[in-house]
Simulated scan of single mutants.
Amino acid sequence: MLKTTTTVKAKDTSSAMEKVITELGEDCVILSTKKKNGMIEMTASNQMKYKSAVKKRYNKEKFSNIYNLKSGKLKINKENIKKVEHKTDITRNINLDTINKIIKQETSSLLEKLDKKLENVYLTDYKNVSKNIIFSYYLKLKELGFSSKVLDKYHEALDKEESFEVSKYKLYRKLSELMAAPYPERIFNSKLIMVTGPSGSGKTAMAAKITSTIVDKYGRNNIVLAELCRNSNTATENLKSYARLLNIPITNSLQNGDLSDTMLLNDNARIVVDLAGNIETGNKVIEELEERHGDKNICSILCIQSGSSPEMIESTLRKVKAQRPIVALTKSDECNISAATLSHLAEKKAKIGLVSGTKSIVDSLLFTDANILAKFMKENF
């Protein structure tokens, strides 16, 4: 391969890096990166003089002193803290725990700044990053989109004696055991199934799919598809179409009292309710019914669209007031369920019980458990 310097153009930094590596090899150095006319221009070289200059600028000892990475944890030397404690009259009055707290706050701030600096750094050769195999596995999973919080918590699943693929699947198993709804079958055992979620999250289709599954399991008797919280005298056309297709009754005239009476008077009745509108409106219905009956005979399904941002997930989970909502990941055929989405759901201890993968309402609902979720992660990440 010729020793040369080149400039490439690409739509993004990742594509530019691929072109550079193809032309100059993995040991090249990036000299500059800039955005021009909507394109990324990257200049790189594999000439020795540039590579030597980069080595001189990089002081390994100084960099390693910023913080000590050990399985993603910050190592604090308490002996140094004790020396500081006796240095002045002021620090004599501050206990060791207080100093520890201050140092952790300062170092956390430093790490956040450092993370931002490293956001656009791309690794081209993992084997030269670290002799610590676990740390290399950690970086690969981070690149897939898993959050630092999740990896820090479950990094013990990574085993240096095993291949990356085996270690990765062990991590998926750990996450799946945490996230899988423990009793998704309570959907079938509930008399009242309330489907809630943000506008546009697929509540109406999810209500129809759950109804279709119940019809397949128990038949059409004693099941009603209902709609509440919508400012209209008639149910939506979509819900009407689903009801006609399933050949079951539909109503939007039920009130909370009617729902309570149905639950108390008819042991076999099941009502699947599409809580149209926003989450706050649906919360009032759910809270009132759960206050009367508990959640033994009531099951709340929280629809979250696949590919939702961490901010959207956090906002949705914060707003919902149901006691034990089962998360349904919707529109997975339109939006990819990313590692970032699953990471944020795991951080918030959300329980996933359903995945909706197609627009069809028949045979399109996946009831999950730890095994199914782990298999799903393996096939998609």
Results as ranks from 00 to 15, higher is better:
Arg57Gly: 13
Arg220Leu: 03
Leu246Val: 05
Lys51Glu: 00
Val166Glu: 10
Asn247Met: 12
Glu162Asn: 10
Asn77Ala: 10
Arg318Ala: 06
Lys240Ile: 14
Leu111Cys: 14
Phe146Trp: 02
Ile94Cys: 12
Leu171Ser: 13
Glu112Cys: 11
Met194Leu: 12
Tyr138Phe: 01
Gly38Tyr: 01
Met17His: 08
Cys28Gln: 02
Asp295Arg: 13
Gln47Ser: 09
Lys104Leu: 13
Lys87Ser: 14
Asn46Asp: 08
Glu112Phe: 13
Arg220Phe: 05
Ser332Trp: 07
Lys203Ser: 12
Asn238Cys: 14
Ala44Lys: 10
Gly200Phe: 12
Arg173Pro: 14
Tyr122Phe: 01
Arg324Ala: 03
Ser364Phe: 02
Thr316Asn: 10
Phe381Lys: 11
Gln323Phe: 05
Ala208Cys: 07
Asn256Trp: 03
Arg220His: 06
Lys101Leu: 15
Ala16Arg: 11
Ser148Ala: 09
Ile66Ala: 05
Lys101Asn: 15
Val84Ser: 02
Arg230His: 07
Asp27Tyr: 06
His155Leu: 09
Ala181Glu: 11
Arg244Gly: 15
Glu347Ile: 02
Asn132Leu: 02
Ile133Glu: 05
Leu141Lys: 03
Lys140Pro: 05
Asn371Val: 08
Ser15Trp: 04
Lys35Tyr: 04
Lys359Val: 01
Ser64Lys: 01
Gly257Met: 13
Tyr58Lys: 01
Thr358Glu: 03
Leu342Val: 08
Lys78Phe: 12
Ile313Met: 09
Leu118Ala: 12
Ile223Cys: 05
Lys359Ala: 00
Asp261Lys: 10
Ile90Leu: 04
His344Met: 07
Leu175Arg: 07
Glu311Ala: 13
Leu366Pro: 06
Ile304Met: 14
Leu192Lys: 08
Ile298Gly: 14
Lys83Gly: 05
Thr43Arg: 06
Lys73Arg: 10
Arg230Lys: 09
Pro325Asn: 01
Met39Leu: 06
Arg186Gln: 14
Asn256Met: 00
Ile90Thr: 04
Ser147Ala: 05
Ser109Cys: 10
Thr5Ala: 03
Leu373Met: 13
Asn59Thr: 04
Val320His: 01
Ile134Glu: 01
Thr5Lys: 01
Arg244Asp: 14
Asn68Thr: 13
Lys349Tyr: 00
Gly294Ala: 15
Asn189Val: 11
Thr262Val: 10
Pro249Phe: 09
Cys299Pro: 15
Phe367Trp: 09
Thr358Leu: 03
Ile286Tyr: 13
Lys11Asn: 00
Pro310Phe: 09
Asn238Arg: 15
Lys62Ser: 10
Asp12Tyr: 07
Ala340Gln: 08
Lys75Gln: 05
Ala207Gly: 03
Lys378Pro: 07
Lys62Phe: 09
Thr22Pro: 02
Ala157His: 11
Asp12Met: 00
Ile133Arg: 01
Val8His: 00
Ser176Ala: 15
Asn231Lys: 12
Lys378Met: 09
Ile372Phe: 13
Asn93Met: 14
Ser300Tyr: 14
Thr124Trp: 06
Ser64Gly: 06
Lys60Ile: 06
Asn247Lys: 14
Val320Gln: 00
Ser338Asn: 02
